[in-house]
Simulated scan of single mutants.
Amino acid sequence: MDLLIEDVITPAGDILINVPADVQTLTGLGFNEAVAHLLIEKASAASALATLIAARRAAYVNEADPLYLEWQYDGTVEKEKDWRAKVAEIKVRFPLMENN
């Protein structure tokens, strides 16, 4: 899948969505190369963050949620600890950067 810039305002003032994140396209829209590279970096970082969040969410659903349900059913301290440990493990495995 090609990297896209979700939305951007061109130097001419046009608002565009889903713009291909490549230098040739961006310079064709009126951006200089330095700005084009910055826009590509931002789009790449946004894509990486979205992928990380999706992986983290899937891990919660597949790994932590069943343990949470067990804890809710059993109501034991041990099951709560298992669930909280799994959540902590997932957060370490898929860390979110501060100040995104």
Rank of each mutant, 00 (worst) to 15 (best):
V23M: 05
R84D: 07
E41K: 10
E80H: 14
E33R: 15
E80I: 03
V8F: 00
W71K: 09
L16T: 02
V23P: 00
S44E: 10
D65I: 14
E98G: 10
R57Q: 11
E41A: 13
A12Q: 08
A50K: 07
A48Y: 03
A55N: 11
A58L: 10
M97N: 12
A58V: 01
L49Q: 10
A36S: 14
I90F: 10
N99E: 14
D22C: 10
N32H: 11
E80Y: 13
L52F: 02
E89D: 14
E33H: 04
D14Q: 12
N62C: 05
N62D: 15
E63T: 09
D2T: 11
P11E: 03
Y68D: 02
I40L: 04
G30L: 03
E78A: 15
T25C: 07
Q72P: 03
E41L: 08
T51D: 13
T25M: 11
V8G: 01
G30Q: 04
D7C: 00
L16E: 05
D74L: 15
A55W: 04
N32C: 07
T27V: 11
S47C: 02
F94W: 14
L4C: 00
Q72I: 13
V8M: 02
S47A: 12
W71I: 07
W83V: 07
N18C: 02
A50I: 00
A59Y: 10
A50L: 01
I90V: 08
D14S: 06
Q72G: 04
P66D: 05
A34E: 13
T76N: 06
V19D: 02
A46L: 04
I90A: 09
